Computed example of a mutant assay.
Amino acid sequence: MNTMQETSFGQDVLNVERVGDVWTFTLGRPDKLNALNADIVDALLHAVTRADAEKAKVMVFRGAGKGFCAGFDLSGFEAQSEGDLVLRFVRIEMLLQAVAATRAMTIALAHGKVFGAGVDLVAVCKRRIAAPETTFRMPGLKFGLVLGTRRFGEIVGKEAARETLENVSSFDAERATQMGFLSQILPQEAWQEVVDQASSTAALLTDQARSDLYRVLGPVHEDADLAALTRSAARFGIKDRLRSYLAK
């Protein structure tokens, strides 16, 4: 077993563990509910790219502490320019696209509260597992951000996605399973069995065959997704919209 600490700007933000062809990425900001600041997004993007280059067969995403991921980290946004904020959102979309494009089988293991871009990270994975107490919420449209919307709609259907996103509704693991968003609800002590099974399943196909399968079943909309996200984030007044959202 190889364990590596991915660091960025002097902060430990991501734990990377490699066991054979299985790479596990554990978000490491538990004091911030693993909210996605620039450091953790860059570390994840670097780690996913590296794992893909080294022909990982399985990639596992999970969070340390009480929850999987609280979404975009809004702390300190007042000190950033609107351009800086737009770039941060673009980098998250680039991360999601990197996960979507990998030939590896991807697994999200979610627990606790999962918000915004954290839900998008779950959505982009091929297998989506959550502990029974997990809750999800996607508030991005409250501040005019279109991130991960198409992916969510492709999983749960356009009508269910529209209703959930329009009403900024929270939904629990049971509802997520009913919508088809989650593959399974399992307690955390059973998660290793899922990873072991995924490793066995991934070995049944060559890397090329798995890559071809994923490409055929998951049509690529990279340019359209990036354009939609950038257009929504770059619209004048993103900081005002964030202020209004936080004030409510």
Rank of each mutant, 00 (worst) to 15 (best):
E78I: 04
F143V: 02
S170H: 07
I185P: 03
V41N: 01
G218D: 03
S199N: 15
S170N: 08
G63M: 00
R210P: 01
I155M: 11
R241D: 07
A247Y: 08
R91I: 02
S170G: 08
A117T: 15
A228H: 05
Y214R: 02
L205N: 09
V124E: 00
G218P: 01
T134A: 12
P139W: 01
F236H: 15
D39H: 02
T106Q: 03
Q97P: 01
V195F: 03
A104I: 10
N15E: 11
A198S: 14
P132H: 01
L121S: 01
T149E: 06
R50C: 09
K32W: 04
L217R: 07
P132G: 02
D240S: 14
M1S: 13
L87N: 14
D21P: 10
K248T: 14
Q197T: 15
A100D: 14
Q178V: 09
F72R: 05
I92Q: 02
A173D: 07
A79F: 13
G237V: 11
N2E: 09
A108W: 12
N37S: 12
K66C: 05
V124S: 00
L182D: 09
R215H: 09
L242Q: 07
D52F: 01
R241E: 07
G140Y: 08
K126M: 02
T24C: 06
A202L: 05
K66S: 11
F77I: 04
V216Y: 14
R231V: 04
Q11S: 14
M138Y: 13
Q11W: 14
N167I: 09
D52P: 02
I92D: 00
L204N: 10
A228L: 05
R235A: 15
V146P: 01
V168L: 05
V124L: 00
A130K: 08
L45Q: 09
V156H: 11
V168Y: 09
S199R: 15
Q208I: 05
T26K: 08
V86A: 00
V146Y: 06
E189Y: 05
